[in-house]
Design a protein around this nucleic acid. Structure first.
Lengths: 233, 233
DNA sequence: CAAAAAAATTGGTTGTGATTGATCTGAAAT
DNA sequence: ATTTCAGATCAATCACAACCAATTTTTTTG
C-alpha cells in the first residue's frame, strides 16, 4: 500500500484550528489562547488539539514555547504549498532542456534501481504490459503516452511515495519545457526504434532484481533519448 | 451434496448492513457504531457481522482500524494525478521515516555525484566553509542548521536548478516527517561525531571532482545518519 | 524600591482506564 | 465433521488527568 487512508487529521481538528485563527484575525506574532482554553473554545480534546498544533508547527504556521505560549509565525517564508507549484512551473521557463534531461537522467536512474529492489510481482507485471503496449503503438502520440506510463509505473514500483512524488514533479517540469522540436519522419515508431530495446533491458533488469543493471539501463535509455533530442551526446 | 457455506445468510447480513448505512446517511469519513453495538442494532451475531464488514472492506466501501473504529471510505480513489500540490504537503504525514530517509539517500547521493561533476570553484569553497563551521558548532541546534546548509550548498553546486528544487522539496518533506528526535547526551557535537569525517570525505570527493567517490560518500553518510535515527541498519 | 521567593501559567510528557477491531477458545448447532 | 456462536483475551487507540519543566506574574521581604 502506498497510501494510507487518514493517519492524523480525523475529525478535521486542523481545519477547525485554522478557521479559528482566521476568524479571530490573528496577526503574525500574536499569541493565541492557551491549549487548555482552546480545547473549550473548539470543543476538541487536548490530544487532538495538540496534534493539530503539531501539524501547524511542522508547516511553519505557528511557533510555540513552554511557559510563553503559542504564536502565529511570521509568514516571511512564503515557502508554503502555494509556492511549490508556482516555483515549479517557473522552472520550466528557467531551465534549459539539456539540464532538464540531465536531472531526469539522474533521478530516473536511481528510481529504476530502487524499483529493481522493491518492485512487487504485480508491479513488474504492470511495467511489462505497458512496455509491450508501447511497442505496439500505432502512432507517435500513442507511443509517447505509453512511454509516460512506462516511466510512471517504474516510479510506482519503488514502493516509496516520496520518490514517486518527486518523479511526478520532475515530469511536470519536463512537460513544461519546450522540447517538441523533434521532427517525426514516420507516422509510427519503427520496429527498430532504439527505445524498444532499451525498455526491454530496463524491464528485464527490474524483473531480475538487478539494481545496478536497472540503473545503468535507465541511464543509457535517457542518454540516448537526449542524444536524439539534441543531436549529439 | 457438498456442504455449502450458505451465502444467503451472509448476503442477508451484508444487505442489512448496507441498509443500515444508507438509512442513517453515513457520509464518507463518518464512523459507524462499534461492532458490539451494531450486533444489537442489527440483530445479528458478531461473526456474521464481521463477515459482512469483511466483504464491505474488500469492496473498499469501508476501512477499519483497531482502537479507532470502522469508517465509510472516501469514494474517489484518493490517488490520482493533478493534486501533487497538496499531496506534497501531506506526504509528511503519509510516509514512514524509514522510507523518507531511503529517498533522501537515493536523491542526495546522485546530487553529490552531479556536484562533483559541475561544482564551480566558488561552490567548492562555500561547501568547505560550511563544513568547517558545522564542525565548530557550539550547540546541536547550530550544528543542525549548518548541516542543513551543507547539504543545500551541495545541491546548489550541481548547477542544476531542477535538482536543487527537487532537493528542496525533499527537504521540506524531511522537516515535516515526525521523526522522533534523538536524545542528545552532550550539549554540543563531540569531536568524534562520525558525521564530521563523513562530511570531510564528501567535501574532498567533490573538490577532487571524483563523482563516484562523492556519490558513495554521501550514500554512506546518510546511511549512518539513518542508522543513528533508527538504531541499526 | 529592589531583590528574592512564591504562586500561577503554559507547552510538554506520562500513566491509567475505557473503547475498539482482531483473534482465540470451547461449546452448541447443523 | 464442519460451521456457528458466545465469551474471553489481545493489541491498538484515545480521552482524561496528573505531573513536569520553562516562563511569567505576583507576593514577600530586607
Amino acid at each position: 500500500m502506498l497510501t494510507r487512508p487518514d493517519p492524523s487529521d480525523r475529525n478535521g481538528a486542523v481545519q477547525l484550528l485554522k478557521d479559528f485563527i482566521a476568524e479571530h484575525a490573528f496577526a503574525p506574532g500574536d499569541r493565541l489562547p492557551a491549549e487548555r482554553e482552546l480545547i473549550g473554545r473548539l470543543g476538541v480534546t487536548r490530544s487532538n488539539l495538540r496534534k493539530a498544533l503539531d501539524a501547524l508547527e511542522r508547516e511553519g504556521a505557528i511557533w510555540r514555547h513552554v511557559g510563553k505560549g503559542t504564536f502565529v509565525a511570521e509568514q516571511g517564508d512564503g515557502r508554503e504549498d502555494g509556492l511549490d507549484l508556482s516555483l515549479l512551473a517557473e522552472i520550466g521557463h528557467q531551465i534549459t532542456p539539456v539540464k532538464m534531461m540531465r536531472a531526469r537522467q539522474c533521478i530516473e536512474a536511481v528510481i529504476a534501481r530502487e524499483a529493481a529492489i522493491n518492485a512487487s510481482r504485480q508491479a513488474v507485471k504492470k511495467i511489462t504490459e505497458i512496455k509491450d503496449r508501447a511497442k505496439a503503438a500505432e502512432t507517435w502520440q500513442d507511443y509517447e503516452a505509453q512511454d509516460d506510463l512506462f516511466h510512471h509505473a517504474i516510479a510506482e514500483a519503488t514502493d516509496n511515495i516520496l520518490l514517486l512524488t518527486l518523479f511526478e514533479q520532475l515530469n511536470k517540469v519536463r512537460r513544461a519545457v519546450a522540447v517538441n522540436t523533434v521532427i517525426r519522419e514516420t507516422v509510427r515508431p519503427p520496429e527498430s526504434h532504439t527505445s524498444f530495446a532499451e525498455h526491454d533491458r530496463i524491464c528485464a533488469a527490474i524483473a531480475a532484481r538487478d539494481p545496478k543493471a536497472a540503473h545503468d539501463a535507465m541511464w543509457q535509455h535517457i542518454s540516448s533519448v537526449s542524444a536524439r533530442l539534441f543531436g549529439e551526446v
